Computed example of a mutant assay.
Amino acid sequence: MQLKHLLEALPSPVSVPESAAAIEINEFAPLDKAKAGSISFLASAKYRRLLESSEASAILLTEKERENCPSSITAIVVDDPYLAYAYLSHQFDLTPKGSGHIHPTALVSDAAQIGRDVTIEAYAVIEADAEVGDNAHIGAHCIVSEGAKVGEFTRLQHHVTLLHRVEVGTHCLIQSGTVIGSNGFGYAPLPEGKGWQPIAQTGRVKIGHYVEIGANCTIDRGAIEDTVIEDRAIIDNLVHLAHNVTIGRATALAAQIGIAGSTHVGANCSAGGQSGFTGHINIADNSHFTGQAMVTKGTTEAGLYSSGIPAQASGLWRKMVARIRKLDSLFERVDAIEKKLK
């Protein structure tokens, strides 16, 4: 693909020297691995040292970095190189496109509503009263259960399960192995240790538009109210959302996060990997949590929040823990001294 044609995928026009417009670009590559025909990007000054030895044909960078670009490489000046890379990366996407056909081994109920140009791959199951919108793509071995809805241009990768009455909006992507609409963990204790009485989970899961959900996630349906994921949220692999959780617009959750029931996470929030949220709390818009945060209380204002102890040398860590164990006795001694001084 010629460089000038590739750059047409950017939302704003970018000027290219006439002598470089016809350069053939065939891949994105990191600065230190790029060859002739590669395009790369410089999004952080810490990688500036790689510019001099890079063999890329073109590099996305800011005006500030233009002077550091070797004359042998075409500098493409943009406001945000990483965002520009995100736009252009789709020109090299190798994900198979939909055929617009239903595979003969797929089981599609006569009572299901299937839109135009829908792809349904081998052994998928579409149950009665399910709805699949125009240009949707249902991967092999997926299940779209009774009364579930899949919006137009949404793609379910292989082995995705949408249980009854789940609603997924338009232009969404749900990766393989994810289960949406499983029963929430709702039980009432029986007397005298006789076990637990299950609570029927009568809510739904409602997912907005342009939402992306990673592989092997589990999203429980609501107990009474719905579990909700709002527009443009992104969820990484191996995330669990319990019943009645709400995830606000454009919020990002990294891998291995667990959010307990009835917690409401606001818009434009983010949480690092392995963070855990207790139930029945409210997280304010624009709250951000570093990895392994243990969130036991809600937030009332935007900000960056952290907990947990970063890894350090074992000897130092043991010394610190030993001192923590002495905090109670130290507190009592200080308290006694203060009383005497008074």
Rank of each mutant, 00 (worst) to 15 (best):
G195N: 01
N216D: 07
N286C: 10
F28D: 03
V168Y: 05
G186A: 07
H103T: 04
H159Y: 14
S15G: 14
E131M: 14
E152R: 13
I219E: 08
Y187G: 02
I234C: 12
I213T: 09
N135W: 13
N286L: 10
L327R: 07
E65H: 09
V211R: 12
E63G: 05
A20V: 06
A293H: 03
V179N: 04
E301R: 04
D79H: 10
F153M: 06
I309E: 13
F289R: 04
L61Q: 08
H101G: 11
K339I: 05
P198L: 00
T263D: 09
A215G: 02
K319V: 01
G195Y: 07
K46N: 13
I39D: 10
F28V: 00
I207L: 09
C172E: 09
T300A: 09
D285G: 01
L330G: 11
L173G: 06
Y123S: 07
C69Y: 08
L163Q: 08
A58S: 06
V16A: 11
C142Q: 09
V265M: 08
L51A: 09
E301S: 09
H5G: 09
N244Y: 10
S287T: 00
D79Q: 12
K326T: 12
A21C: 12
E225M: 09
A260W: 12
V168L: 04
E301T: 00
A84I: 01
I229T: 07
R249E: 14
I337R: 11
V295Q: 06
L10E: 09
S307R: 06
I138D: 10
P198Y: 03
G214I: 04
L60F: 08
G37D: 07
L83F: 13
R165A: 12
D80T: 01
E8M: 11
S109G: 00
W196T: 03
R249A: 03
T105K: 02
T95F: 15
M1Q: 13
G133W: 11
N286G: 10
S72Q: 12
V179D: 02
Y187I: 01
R249T: 07
E121P: 07
K206N: 02
R204G: 02
R232A: 05
